[in-house]
Amino acid sequence: MIKRLVAQDLHYALRSARGVLFLVFFSVFWFWVFSKFGQIDTQWLRNPESTVLLSWLFDPKTAQALFIDRHPAFSLFFLVAINTAPMFVLLAASDQTANDIGSKYLRFLLPRCQRTEIYLGRFLGCVLLVWAAYITVSLVAALWVVLFNGANLAEIMVEWFWVVISMMVYVLPFIAFMSLCSALVGSAGLSALLGMGAYLLVVIIIGIVGIRYDGAAELVGWILPNTIKPWILLMDLGQWLKSLLVAAVYVVIYGWLGWLMFSRRDI
């Protein structure tokens, strides 16, 4: 049943306003980013002076992992992808159940499937859509780097694999977060607004609290799944496994809260 629901969700995602809107924004953004890639001297990122700058921006280990151990152009893509992922995922995952609650379409589904199946099906449909989008864009980025930045294809494909599985893990908690938002309201727009609003609010709180109480800001920061980003950026198996574990915890917490709302609400 879940397989059918997922298939139908994906089928509809490519025809619905929300799916098309996400794909259009996503494509336009990446088209713009790739158009700028040619103008950047990515080899400069490998120079000692740039390494000092990047070590200040990240930390020496991350800077080395991204720009010295791996191809800097592809790492640059990875950095852009991981930093913009929350925005795109919050948009793509905003309408898991929200619109169908508002339009009461779920009343056609509920005599045929269980609430659990609907909730899980919509989550998984969203996960597959977002994964497909990132697999595609990172493949384009890999080929771009090979063609225009003279990277070695075999090396880039290994890095591509790392980037893909890292992005797959990183987006999961954000999708679960939107499952919760989507179950709370009755329209996709409101769900997106709620998700982005809550995200921004936490970021602002972290910023304000961080001015005086660094430890407290770090604690508040755990509300959002961004906390796993530094581990993912290290591109190290141990760190990746740690981020996978924590991402799973986020998914369980957000997903469970969303399920509580969805299972108890009138539809």
Partner: peptide, 20 residues
């Protein structure tokens, strides 16, 4: 779960999906 597919309803105000 035993009721799924055995009970059907014409809901008063449910709307179909758009664009399909």
């Amino acid at each position: 779960v035993a009721l799924k597919g055995r009970v059907s309803i014409l809901p008063q105000d449910a709307r179909f999906l758009k664009s399909l």
